[in-house]
């Protein structure tokens, strides 16, 4: 009896270790080979020289970072931050009232409204961008309805429109989740105590939904910032974002080390944002 009681936990703990091995090792191996090793390659590439005909020469250098510091390239990074930030801000300004109203809808309509927000998101990304060419181009719909010949395509505003169109659902969903979770009694209490609707919003609703706001902003900013497809299709050749630059380094100029350095700049900006987000969320 005694030996059995003692023996069981031992065999269980060995079973646990075996279980951990069986469940975790396939995924960990996959992640190591196809995620961590590739990321390590990107990182290490930043300090190597480019080969004459593409590829990498394993010779230490800081010239990639010197090039990154060039105002020409830093300007592109800054421009990308600007475009992504404007997109995020507009998404927030449109997305918040939308999410707020969806959260007030009666049960069945709530589902319908939410599905309708997500639905375009599940259609092909490039087709959604293409739709804007038809709307905005010279002979396109907007010009023919207005009877004008406006140059609506191929500028930074078009890029923002395309990004906004592609990622707005990613703003509405986390905002909706945050607003939905609010206890309506809090707002009632605030109103009963004499606060105006605006004060209630500013002092009760908004502070309590800050985590949702941060998540939504991140969801929109991240894919906008590193995007190269939308600026290429809707931006023409004039305005390049850092994504286009990276694409060109890898597929045209074949300068992999510098391309990797630009990718590192993207990662750095994102890490910075995540830190800001964690800080704001903790304070809220």
């Amino acid at each position: 009896m005694k030996s059995e009681v003692k023996a069981r936990p031992v065999s269980r703990s060995r079973g646990r270790r075996l279980g951990a091995f069986v469940f975790l090792s396939p995924g960990v191996v996959y992640l190591t080979v196809l995620l961590l090793v590739p990321l390590a390659l990107v990182l290490s590439n930043t300090v190597f020289r480019r080969g004459r005909f593409g590829g990498v020469v394993y010779e230490f250098t800081v010239e990639n970072f010197e090039r990154l510091a060039d105002p020409l390239y830093l300007g592109v990074v800054a421009n990308s931050v600007k475009i992504a930030a404007i997109t995020t801000l507009i998404a927030l300004l449109i997305g918040y009232p939308t999410a707020y109203l969806i959260a007030q809808l009666p049960g069945k309509w709530k589902t319908v409204a939410l599905v309708a927000i997500v639905l375009p998101f599940w259609t092909n990304f490039i087709i959604r961008v293409y739709a804007w060419i038809i709307l905005l181009s010279g002979p396109g719909l907007i010009n023919s309805v207005l009877g004008t010949k406006l140059e609506l395509l191929y500028n930074q505003g078009t890029i923002v429109t395309g990004l906004l169109y592609s990622y707005l659902p990613l703003m509405v969903l986390p905002l909706y989740a945050a607003i939905e979770r609010l206890d309506p009694q809090l707002r009632e209490a605030s109103a009963n105590l004499g606060a105006s609707a605006f004060t209630t919003f500013r002092k009760v609703t908004l502070p309590l939904t800050v985590p949702g706001v941060m998540t939504g902003c991140l969801f929109v900013f991240v894919p906008s910032f590193g995007n190269f497809v939308i600026p290429e299709i809707l931006g023409g050749s004039k305005s390049i974002m850092v994504g286009n630059l990276i694409r060109d380094q890898f597929l045209k100029a074949r300068d992999w080390p510098f391309g990797s350095t630009l990718a590192l700049a993207i990662i750095a900006v994102l890490v910075l944002l995540l830190l800001v987000q964690a800080w704001v969320t903790r304070r809220a």
Binding site: L34, P38, L41, N45, P223, W256, A263, I266, I267
Partner: peptide, 13 residues
């Protein structure tokens, strides 16, 4: 991670 970063990492690998 941004898809572009994953993409170039895998291409390098």
């Amino acid at each position: 991670l941004p898809d572009l970063v994953l993409a170039i990492g895998l291409l390098l690998f």
